[in-house]
Design a protein around this nucleic acid. Structure first.
Lengths: 237, 237
DNA sequence: TAGTGGTCTAGACCACCGG
DNA sequence: CGGTGGTCTAGACCACTAA
């Protein structure tokens, strides 16, 4: 384990467990560098991780402080870190997936463009409904090139595709580009999500990339708007 | 100007202007540290800024490369940097604001809690409609403590409140916490946004903080879903 | 194997904040 | 004014990638 990650985790634990309380000042960087027996730069790297997560703030000339956020907001921080893989956000409930479609096809122009491949290549076309405690909450269409993600099977779709990619194929997921919109549900969505035409859907369009820079997934997730909301923390600069 | 910010801006320009093209490799860190005559750590800090913006990717053992994203996605990067202040996203159109309400009141429990003040303190209560090219696209409710933002006037609301806060009051905006949802428009919103009851709204609830850690604004923006979408780039770790 | 980015050190000086 | 976090240096070694 890397030093700065260990220190970050230690500080994170101390905040979550209330050892460092809301609005309380953390030890100074130079103090911590002695306490943890590392250089000040290593401390700063650890602290900056928590700043990016929105847990603490630094004030030049004053010190570093635990941010005054509500308790339920602390949860979103964990979500933010594991931003890929959706089942984690419902981890305290029973999450199931029903597979509506699982085919290998050629992509249309739009999908080929998003995945930066040709229309003559082959891709998986997957459609799933996700249930939390037996209530449907999202309908997903996913498109992945078979050359990048070989050997995908139905059982992988029922649990987590990301598990398969990271743990079986040993590929690393690096980033995702997302667009969020609101829309009216289609008739098909009304049926599968068990909603009427007056409940909007929250659409998340995503392209996800591996650490080698290749786009491995294009997906469109349409969430029941009474079951979904997205939280984020923005830090200026 | 700081060295790492200058270098970051130089690299950003070279990417935007096509001097470094899509998928092209950037000079190595050790090369750049000689070219720019700075230490390698300073180069890394500059490069890491662009990584966070989603413009480039680094691959250990290989090098640093310009990310293969679509042209229109480059725009969102500029948006991301100036994440506060909404008029910037419509900068190429005529943006106007109509003020529906501008009062000083006591906050209810919910608002007081979000702003971390008492219900006996005073706040501005502002409601505005924003127009782009004379088409209404968002209705905003904004609540700000008068002690933090003194002297706010109607003219500040017509242009940008953030300008007033940063340039007149000389306060620094540091972060914001946002929640995004989809919802059905109220009758009032249908009227002001000129939409029917079947067009959903995209709601953004926001608490914004100053660099001293105080919450200075709680706002709810409800966007016409045919005019608004939110883009973001997520980098793992 | 050679060369990349990733981590880490032990300093130094600067800009800013509070008393 | 002393002490904070912010920037910057000139090294060193490690983990990983590609040829």
């Amino acid at each position: 384990m890397l030093k700065y990650k260990e220190i970050a985790q230690d500080l994170r634990d101390k905040i979550v467990n209330g050892i460092y309380k809301v609005n309380e000042q953390l030890p100074f960087e130079r103090e911590m560098s002695i306490d943890y027996d590392v250089s000040r730069i290593t401390i700063r790297k650890a602290v900056d991780l928590l700043v990016a997560e929105g847990l603490i703030v630094k004030r030049r000339g004053s010190g570093t402080f635990v941010k005054d956020i509500n308790d339920d907001e602390a949860i979103e921080i964990a979500m933010k870190k594991q931003f890929l893989g959706f089942s984690t956000t419902h981890s305290d409930h029973k999450v199931k997936s029903k597979i509506i479609k699982f085919k290998i096809v050629n992509p249309d122009e739009k999908i080929a463009n998003k995945l930066k491949i040709g229309t003559d290549e082959f891709i998986y076309h997957v459609e799933r409904i996700r249930y939390s405690d037996n209530i449907p909450y999202v309908m997903e269409k996913t498109f992945m090139p078979i050359t990048l993600i070989p050997g995908l099977q139905k059982k992988n779709l029922e649990s987590s595709v990301y598990d398969y990619i990271e743990n079986v194929l040993k590929l690393k997921i690096q980033s995702s580009h997302r667009t969020i919109r609101a829309d009216v549900p289609t008739e098909k969505e009304q049926k599968y999500l068990k909603i009427d035409r007056y409940l909007p859907v929250l659409e998340v369009e995503q392209v996800a990339f591996l650490s080698n820079g290749q786009a491995f997934e294009y997906s469109i997730s349409r969430h029941r708007s009474d079951k979904a909301e997205f939280k984020m923390i923005n830090i200026k600069e």
